[in-house]
Design a protein around this nucleic acid. Structure first.
Lengths: 189, 189, 189, 189
DNA sequence: CATGAATGAGAATTCATTCAT
DNA sequence: AATGAATGAATTCTCATTCAT
């Protein structure tokens, strides 16, 4: 039994894993965030057991589906953290995150959750939080952002805005408006 | 068939209705927002059918439970709409609504929803929206609030803030902070 | 809601209950003691939910199926307890119990179990134990039975004998032999 | 294909076999007699396939785990068969067997079963049966034991006693008592 | 020989809603 | 009006066994 961080999957296992992920993404794209493992297994043409082997539950699958976006977001945050204009960077980061959260059902859930099923998710969120925290501090020192908000608060407030948009019609104009309220909401009082 | 505006209930029917509502409130207070009609019927000591007669589904029951708070909120909004200082009135109204939404599971759901199962709920929300709309206009004219927000947006943003608070720990300090971001978020850009 | 010990069932409910019990008995008679509620529901032509309403689990169903025999056994024990010849009564009681346990799959399980799912089962076992205890004391005083055995031990030893017979072929002759060893086993040393 | 009586195992195969057996024993010692081959494989750090290669099923594994005890028991029986006092030897043999059966989950199952998955088990049981049969005959001739019991019956009755003890609490005193009933049960009527 | 991914039937249980009583 | 029995699809998860690598 070889021990290493990332176990390389056997070719067929990797193929199945991808199939499941693809179907899961399709389900989410179709507006169904229940992610029933049985249904997904059937649609993916694999046994239920296979799905359970790769993803021990809905949450794990959700995190796997969102991991690419989460990583992308973390990268964005890291690059933003060192940008010349903290406030502008922060706004752009929020815009990016909100867009993703709106277009990828389930992403907000992962982002706002205080816990995670998979250690990799926790790690990615930490990366994001660290970078965002740095960005926040810089923006705060510039007097642009209130000082009592932590990275986790931003994640939660993002989730809140996503929720507000999702619970009714959300034409582009409204998305823009709510995003604007979100950025405004961070100003010092 | 008698003609009536508000259906007068037979004494025993009214008693049953109240029992069901009381139990539903208890369940919500206990942190269970699933509002399973079977369970509620059992706890209330009535048949499921009786619950269904009074409330044709979870949503209807939820709205009935929240109606008192919703009415209270509408009244507050109406009184706020004519207050001397629109902005202060608005803030106080938001504080009140958020507090209720946090303490009464299900209230935010009713408040933010674009639809309703019961006509009375729709009516109450309209009352609220009309009053809040008036207040918003006044605050906007004072230059305190951005002009592109309608009453329904405020309800949705309130729901968003509630969601953000509920998805993690929310000690009083955080509630205060998030409320503050909510009020700030309405400022013109 | 009327309160009483034995709720009388609605006619159709009673019919369903009986159907389920009949099928359960058939399954047991066919040598299947798994008593899968799904299967039983299907065979009985009722919904699974109906089975669960009447019997909240395998154990409850098993006890319901065995209750008639258990009651009969308790009655026998009560009558035996006052018989003229304690030892003969005891032997006959054991013979009766063993016969039942062999012919009714599941009965031994209920009889030997230290716990019960249904209060009625507990009550019946208590009745049996009291009567058997009395009989044991009388037989002990006559010097026919060792003094360190309680009624629950007899139930367990009966279960043991049943087990020994069931785990291999058990033609009538062997049943008789093992029953004989059981009665012999109670003698003082 | 090499011809062989006892298959000599390759060193690593032997090591794997031992690992699996060790884990299986641990599981049983921990009170889990389900012996799920997947679980055992994982705990042993080998693939399921490896477990299946060595032991084609739960029963085979169980027998392998119990084989040492079974052999020990056969030896005891053989030595007992030639002892000076058949009855005393028999009692001691029963005491030994019962103790093992109680302390080693699964041993009673192997002992009482009329069939076996592995030929070695069958052989060991035959050895035991032959020796015990001899002992029984001697004890019978002495008038201490009833004549209608065969070795297989003793195995079954032992299993019964084990079952009776296992289905409830079994403090040492009770073990002693039930063992006493077992030995008593063999007396001629 | 060893591996462990895959299988997929199957088991247990729940719950929203209907409708006969 | 009230009752609560019945429904049964739906959901979650397990595990013995096979077989491709």
């Amino acid at each position: 039994m070889k021990s290493r961080g990332e176990t390389p999957l056997r070719a067929d296992a990797a193929r199945n894993r991808e199939r499941v992920l693809r179907i899961a993404r399709e389900q989410l794209a179709a507006g169904d965030d229940s992610l029933q493992l049985n249904t997904i297994a059937r649609l993916a043409g694999v046994g239920v057991g296979t799905v359970y082997r790769h993803f021990p539950g809905r949450q794990a699958l959700l995190e796997a589906v969102s991991s690419a976006s989460l990583e992308k977001l973390a990268e964005r945050a890291e690059s933003a953290a060192t940008g010349a204009e903290p406030l502008a960077e922060l706004h752009e980061l929020l815009r990016f995150a909100l867009t993703r959260a709106l277009n990828e059902l389930g992403f907000a859930e992962v982002l706002e959750s205080p816990s995670a099923a998979d250690a990799r998710t926790t790690a990615l969120k930490s990366r994001f939080d660290r970078a965002l925290g740095k960005l926040l501090r810089r923006a705060t020192q510039d007097g642009h952002v209130r000082a009592d908000l932590r990275a986790s608060d931003i994640r939660r407030l993002l989730g809140g805005t996503t929720h507000a948009l999702r619970c009714g019609p959300h034409p582009p104009r409204l998305v823009k408006t709510y995003l604007s309220t979100l950025t405004t909401s961070l100003r010092p009082t």
